[in-house]
């Protein structure tokens, strides 16, 4: 094993998390916000796997199991989220988050 340490993976994951946050905060298109949420999910998954791999109980398989569950939940989330996007688009004819503010007080 070479000298790739846990920190390498953690720093990468933190950077990816930052990029995901950037997308969530700055973009106004719902679909791009969904992209960014996926990036956040994947950054977290990378952490799970890295902690499992460098942790002291690799045979318990906690990391892959958690990552698998996270991937499945993320898939469900994307399916429902995109269905909502389509429904919203049909109603408002836009997917711009700034314009979907009918609940806001005038």
């Amino acid at each position: 094993m070479s000298n790739l340490t846990l920190e390498h993976y953690l720093i990468l994951s933190a950077v990816l998390l930052g990029i995901g946050l950037l997308g969530v905060f700055t973009r106004r298109n719902v679909i791009v916000v969904l992209f960014s949420i996926e990036i956040l999910f994947n950054a977290a998954n990378l952490n799970f796997i890295a902690f499992w791999r460098f942790g002291d109980q690799p045979e318990a398989l906690m990391g892959p199991i958690f990552a698998l569950f996270a991937i499945a939940v993320a898939a469900a989330e994307v399916a429902v989220g995109l269905a909502l996007v389509i429904a919203v688009y049909r109603h408002f004819k836009t997917v711009d988050l700034e314009k979907l503010d009918t609940l806001k007080e005038e």
Partner: peptide, 28 residues
């Protein structure tokens, strides 16, 4: 993930994210 020896998770990642989520996003 492959580098971290989680090759099953890597395969699932390709199958679910690239095969399914990507297509779903494109369709939307």
């Amino acid at each position: 993930f492959v580098m971290l020896l989680a090759d099953y998770v890597a395969a699932v990642q390709v199958l679910v994210y690239i095969g399914a989520v990507g297509i779903l996003l494109l369709f939307t």
